[in-house]
């Protein structure tokens, strides 16, 4: 009787869903590193050792200016951390890095050493979406890594459903889009059409370095350098791919369901 066996098997599994966000978030292993922090005050004069090692040209240093690291472009390879002898660029081991404004991901200026974490939606939208958010995922020219770690959120360990967040099959059933990928020229039209099909008010979430800024494919004429070139974006979630915890934190943050980090 496979039906009975299946039920018995299911019972043996018990509850596998993590206690986060009520309990502590699962710790990131040391090697992960989390978000970056840039203390340009520590930079040696005129040093730009980090600039050429970055595979996505996320770091720039204009003469007379502090170094600028764009976490939106970053694929978290840690090459710059290794290349920086005075430890101006460090890893924070923090999984939280979702922001509302593109500029909030640029690190380096005094006072802007870390990302400026996302604020919640305004009261009206929060009322609408806070307890029930339906998203249509559009994969628009990534490599399927962001899709994989977004998908994971639907499995038992993470169980996105408990927050009332769900991925739906049609943009017409959705409150917004979750976009991955650099937006290839061949996907531009499909993305536009999907966006137009979502009834307003709608929100757009860009997940991963590609959707934020083109990722490893940045500045290639065959891609659009991210979702913002085609549709307005409300939330940027960095990573390559972002850790599911980072995505979850971003979604909950947007819905006003986790505390905003207090300024130090």
């Amino acid at each position: 009787m496979f039906a009975l066996e299946t039920i018995a098997h299911r019972l043996r599994q018990g509850c596998q869903t993590m206690s986060y966000p009520d309990g502590p978030a699962p710790a990131l292993p040391d090697r992960h590193g989390g978000a970056l922090r840039v203390d340009s005050a520590r930079c040696a004069a005129g040093c730009d050792a980090c600039v050429p090692v970055c595979p996505t040209r996320a770091i720039t240093r204009l003469p007379g200016q502090p170094v600028a690291l764009d976490l939106g472009r970053c694929i978290f390879c840690s090459a710059c951390v290794e290349a920086c002898p005075p430890h101006a660029i460090t890893q924070t081991n923090d999984h939280r890095m979702a922001v509302r404004g593109r500029g909030d991901l640029v690190l380096g200026k005094p006072g802007e050493e870390e990302v400026r974490l996302a604020a919640a939606l305004d009261e009206k939208l929060r009322k609408l979406f806070g307890r029930s958010l339906r998203l249509r995922q559009v994969s628009a020219g990534g490599c399927n890594a962001c899709e994989a770690d977004t998908n994971v959120l639907g499995t038992i360990g993470w169980d996105l459903g408990r927050f009332g967040i769900q991925f739906v099959a049609s943009p017409r059933h959705a409150d917004g889009l979750l976009i991955t990928g650099a937006v290839s020229r061949n996907m531009e039209l499909a993305l536009k059409k999907s966006y137009d099909a979502v009834p307003p008010p709608k929100i757009v979430i860009a997940v991963g370095a590609c959707a934020i800024a083109g990722g490893p494919f940045v500045d290639h004429p065959q891609v659009c350098n991210g979702a913002a070139a085609v549709v307005p974006v409300d939330l940027f979630i960095p990573g390559c791919p972002p850790h599911p915890l980072t995505i979850l934190d971003g979604l909950l943050r947007l819905l006003g369901r986790v505390e905003r980090r207090l300024p130090p």
Partner: peptide
């Protein structure tokens, strides 16, 4: 639909950076 011109990109990067592209 997700053609990104990766092979062309390989020609524009120094070899050590190409590895990260290959991962994507």
């Amino acid at each position: 639909y997700v053609h990104k011109g990766i092979e062309k990109l390989f020609e524009s990067l120094p070899i050590p950076h190409c590895v990260r592209l290959a991962e994507s």
